[in-house]
């Protein structure tokens, strides 16, 4: 007998019960079963995992809808409800400057996101978005192998949000706006005629009910269609969520960045300020709790000269019974060469 044999004598402990394994799997199945958007798309940086873990029940589904990750909600009834003109905004001006700037070298956008979790642990996440539309992810040690293995993580959702951003930069902003709002799905019925919008709403309600049935959970009562301001807030929630997602995936792509700026400028509940941060001129883009589900506001800080994201910060909403936790993500963006990344030179 040696010390390893002694160690093994300490290994016998009461295991979790079979029911505990069932419960844990049910939690996972709930997370997996959330509509396709959450499956194929990296989670929002401000959506901490625990919020998803607790997502068993109608309230949780409603919350994720508002956060714009499930997208299932109310139809507009008319396309005009989604329409919002581009107002003169510092963001539009900046978008024009970004678009007019000299072409940057390289063939890919690299965004390095650093998130400090509530427990102060740091998480660094690299996202490489190529001009061809591929997406590679990892960290400083795994990104190169992701590229060499051609482990492209781009999904149809990614393609849609990036196409919508490019459309906003180069073409019809209103068309791009609808495309960005509906990138995950169009349960809201944006841009559809009333009959088609009704069907989109009903189909989504049926999907939600079916998901709960599959999980053996009580099916939540159908939710009434939001109308008026609530509907507008949900539409803008989708626009904010999808557009800012596009930005943090492909910030160093000029078209994507310019398009996102123009789209954010169409949201009335977004305010733009200008200040200094560590000696550089920055724009602060603030989204009110109205379009973030009521529990948080968000401040996206951009370099005022080139529009590159610097920081995304979430603040708890004062009046919310369940305010979100404060969260910060910092970004560094640059143009790089895919070949250099593959060669481990980044």
């Amino acid at each position: 007998m040696d010390e390893m044999d002694l160690m093994k004598k300490l290994s016998d402990v009461p295991s979790p019960s079979p029911e505990a394994y069932d419960r844990a799997r049910a939690v996972l199945e709930t997370a997996v079963a959330e509509p396709v958007d959450t499956v194929v798309r990296p989670k929002r940086w401000f959506s901490w995992p625990r919020a998803g873990v607790a997502a068993v029940g109608a309230a949780a589904v409603a919350a994720t809808v508002v956060m714009g990750v499930t997208g299932g909600s109310a139809p507009t009834g008319t396309s005009t409800e989604a329409a919002s003109p581009v107002v003169e905004s510092p963001l539009v001006k900046l978008a024009s400057e970004v678009k007019a700037a000299a072409a940057q070298p390289g063939d890919s956008s690299l965004v390095i996101a650093t998130k400090t979790a509530p427990d102060n642990s740091r998480h660094v996440y690299y996202t490489l978005y190529t001009d061809k539309g591929q997406i590679f992810t990892g960290d400083s040690t795994t990104l190169a192998s992701s590229v060499t293995r051609n482990d492209d993580q781009a999904t149809p959702y990614n393609a849609k949000v990036m196409a919508a951003a490019r459309e906003a930069a180069n073409g019809d902003v209103e068309k791009a706006r609808i495309a960005m709002i509906t990138a995950a799905n169009n349960a809201l019925g944006v841009g559809l005629d009333p009959a088609a919008a009704d069907k989109a709403w009903a189909d989504t309600q049926a999907e939600v009910a079916e998901t709960f049935r599959k999980l053996g959970k009580e099916v939540p009562a159908p939710r009434p269609r939001p109308t008026g301001k609530e509907l507008e807030n949900r539409i803008n929630n989708h626009l904010w969520s999808n557009a800012t997602y596009a930005l943090v995936v492909g910030a160093a792509n000029t078209e994507v960045r310019a398009g996102v700026l123009k789209l954010l400028a169409t949201i009335k509940e977004v305010t733009v300020g200008e200040t200094d941060l560590d000696g550089q001129r920055v724009l602060t883009i603030t989204a009110s709790p109205d379009i973030l589900g009521g529990n948080a506001s968000a401040v996206l800080t951009l370099n005022a000269d080139n529009g590159l994201p610097i920081r995304d910060e979430v603040f708890p909403a004062k009046d919310s019974p369940q305010p979100s936790k404060h969260a910060v993500v910092s970004y560094e963006s640059s143009r790089v060469s895919l070949a250099d990344v593959a060669a481990g030179k980044i």
């Binding site: 979790p16 019960s17 505990a20 394994y21 419960r23 844990a24 799997r25 049910a26 939690v27 996972l28 997370a31 997996v32 989670k43 995992p49 625990r50 998803g52 873990v53």
Partner: peptide
């Protein structure tokens, strides 16, 4: 038993 579900969701994400 309390954290097992968290582990699965973290792994999934």
């Amino acid at each position: 038993e309390d954290v097992l579900g968290d582990v699965w969701v973290a792994a999934y994400e």
